[in-house]
Computed example of a mutant assay.
Amino acid sequence: MSNKPDAKLFYLIVGNNIKKYRTIRNFSLQDLAERVGLTKKTIQRYENGEIKIDVDRLNEIAEALDVEIPKLVEGAETFLGVNLDDLDTVKVPILGRVSCGDGILNIEEIEGYEETPKSWIRGGEHFYVRAEGDSMINARIFDGDLLLIRKQDDVEEGEIAAVLIDSKVYLKKVFKNDGIMVLQSENPQYGPVFRTKENYETIKILGKLKKIVINM
């Protein structure tokens, strides 16, 4: 996004598309402004390409105009390396409490939903969990971060997985040795957890860590 002329062209084209669909819907500047909670002047500046429009705002305008986001960036895709999949989002659940009976993952509580780029969730079922504590700080996972997990019952050696241990979800690095699974924290203050034949039923891999959404 360092090419300023391209940036200007991108926002001009998006602005023209907003104006186009506003006209099609027979909305005045004031009508659209009220639908997205902005001022008439701000909508006008968006349409003129005078100010930057972020993805969240573009989502709100697309919803107000009843169009898909790709329609609002049509013709602007070639500028700034824009990826339309990153602009098109879906809601992914944030799991609160889960359980695992008979090897089946049961969602007992959903904390909420997170708008997520479609490009993040290709291939498989995904969900979020929220990090707690400091056991994974050396992997740059901190308390409160949202962690995007792809649902799967196994991971490769050394990968970080969401693991259900006695009805609570933890993030751990997974290692395997002679039929024993070693779940390792990324903080030397915490020792490893071992899954063996004796406690096999109480420890289950829920999925693989795909993305960390930092809690600001």
Score class of each variant (00 low, 15 high):
75 G>W: 06
75 G>H: 07
75 G>D: 06
76 A>Y: 02
76 A>K: 00
77 E>T: 08
77 E>W: 07
78 T>H: 15
80 L>M: 08
80 L>H: 01
80 L>N: 04
81 G>E: 03
82 V>D: 09
82 V>F: 14
82 V>R: 08
83 N>L: 07
84 L>A: 13
85 D>I: 09
85 D>A: 15
89 T>L: 12
89 T>Y: 11
89 T>I: 14
90 V>G: 09
90 V>Q: 10
91 K>R: 13
91 K>I: 13
92 V>R: 02
93 P>T: 00
93 P>Y: 04
94 I>C: 08
94 I>K: 06
94 I>N: 06
95 L>W: 01
95 L>K: 00
96 G>S: 04
96 G>A: 07
96 G>H: 05
97 R>Q: 12
98 V>G: 04
99 S>F: 11
100 C>T: 13
100 C>Q: 11
100 C>G: 14
101 G>C: 13
102 D>R: 15
104 I>E: 14
107 I>N: 05
107 I>F: 07
107 I>S: 05
107 I>Y: 07
107 I>G: 07
109 E>S: 13
110 I>H: 03
112 G>L: 06
113 Y>S: 09
114 E>F: 11
115 E>G: 13
115 E>L: 12
116 T>Y: 01
116 T>W: 01
117 P>M: 06
119 S>Y: 04
119 S>P: 07
119 S>D: 08
119 S>R: 09
120 W>A: 09
120 W>L: 11
121 I>S: 06
121 I>N: 07
122 R>V: 15
122 R>M: 13
123 G>T: 08
124 G>M: 03
124 G>A: 05
125 E>Q: 12
126 H>K: 05
127 F>R: 02
128 Y>V: 05
129 V>P: 03
130 R>S: 03
131 A>N: 04
132 E>C: 15
132 E>W: 10
132 E>K: 13
133 G>F: 01
134 D>V: 05
134 D>G: 01
134 D>N: 02
134 D>F: 00
135 S>D: 00
135 S>V: 05
136 M>K: 02
137 I>G: 07
137 I>C: 10
137 I>S: 08
138 N>G: 10
139 A>F: 06
140 R>Q: 13
140 R>I: 09
141 I>H: 01
141 I>E: 00
142 F>I: 06
144 G>I: 01
144 G>C: 02
144 G>W: 00
146 L>A: 11
146 L>E: 12
147 L>N: 03
149 I>E: 00
149 I>M: 04
151 K>H: 10
152 Q>F: 07
153 D>K: 13
153 D>T: 14
154 D>Y: 14
